[in-house]
């Protein structure tokens, strides 16, 4: 396989060594089937063992290796060097997050947000396991299935202009996951999730731009979830005016 050489301009930041991030350039010889992650692994293994980044499955499902590649949030295991050649590639940590080191962002806030939307089945009454599964038709599965495909890769947060201004915004992935449970025929937790999904001003600042859905590598379409939460919340509000006694 023929090899060409491409330049990677990689953001470096070691908090105890540098006051501000710097850029380091690496010339990487690459075969045609290499992704950006292969180039980073080549640097780490052969050139500079101090470069830090997250990765694991290298097949686009574990969600570890999100980075800005030429300014766009991407899974670095899923973008090919050949598609950027002969231009240099700029590799930076995901936008909108604090940077811990090099390409590693601090995503601990997302874990708290995820928990806040109660992403688990809430039942009024549990059926004993001995009575078997809850029946769910293929159509009922379809209602929420694509919102369940989120790999928590954080690309949508890196693309979200609202999250960029307000890190308190629950954000696209967590809203989509909370909404996924609302849509699940086995779940009765919509009322419990209403407050966190609909209450924050973030969703009202979210326009129809839908950058989150554009960058999503799994076609989850979190923007659709946010718009639907807006509609549901507005409906609830109107109902609460019309029938103040009937709403939970």
């Amino acid at each position: 396989m023929s090899e060409r050489t491409i330049t990677l301009d990689v953001t470096r930041y070691r908090p105890h060594q540098e006051a501000v991030p710097t850029v380091q350039s690496y010339a990487i010889p690459f075969p045609d089937d290499w992704v950006v992650l292969d180039a980073l692994n080549h640097i780490k293994d052969q050139v500079d063992g101090s470069l830090s980044y997250r990765w694991s499955c290298r097949m686009g499902v574990c969600g570890s290796c999100g980075m800005m590649v030429n300014g766009e949030p991407k899974l670095s295991c899923a973008v090919f060097l050949r598609d950027y050649f002969p231009r240099a590639i700029r590799v930076e940590p995901l936008s909108n997050f604090p940077v811990i080191r090099d390409l590693v962002i601090d995503m601990s806030g997302f874990l708290d947000k995820l928990k806040s939307v109660k992403p688990w089945i809430i039942r009024e009454q549990e059926k004993p396991l001995s009575e078997g599964e809850y029946l769910q038709s293929p159509r009922e599965l379809d209602a929420y299935q694509h919102f369940s495909q989120c790999i928590n890769c954080m690309l949508c947060y890196a693309a979200c202009p609202v999250f960029g201004l307000d890190s308190g915004f629950v954000g696209p992935a967590a809203i989509a996951l909370g909404y996924r449970y609302n849509l699940d025929s086995r779940d009765h937790g919509t009322a419990e999730r209403r407050e966190v999904l609909g209450d924050h001003e973030g969703i009202w600042q979210c326009t129809f731009v839908g950058e989150c859905s554009v960058v999503c590598p799994k076609h989850v379409d979190p923007a659709a979830a946010i718009q639907r939460v807006k509609v549901d919340t507005a409906k609830d509000w109107i109902l609460s005016l019309v029938m103040p006694w009937g709403q939970r």
């Binding site: 688990w120 089945i121 599964e133 369940s148 699940d184």
Partner: peptide
């Protein structure tokens, strides 16, 4: 079945 009760989106037959 426990995992089904916990929300795993198993593929389904027409009868659910």
């Amino acid at each position: 079945i426990q995992l089904e009760h916990w929300g795993c989106p198993w593929s389904r037959d027409a009868d659910g």
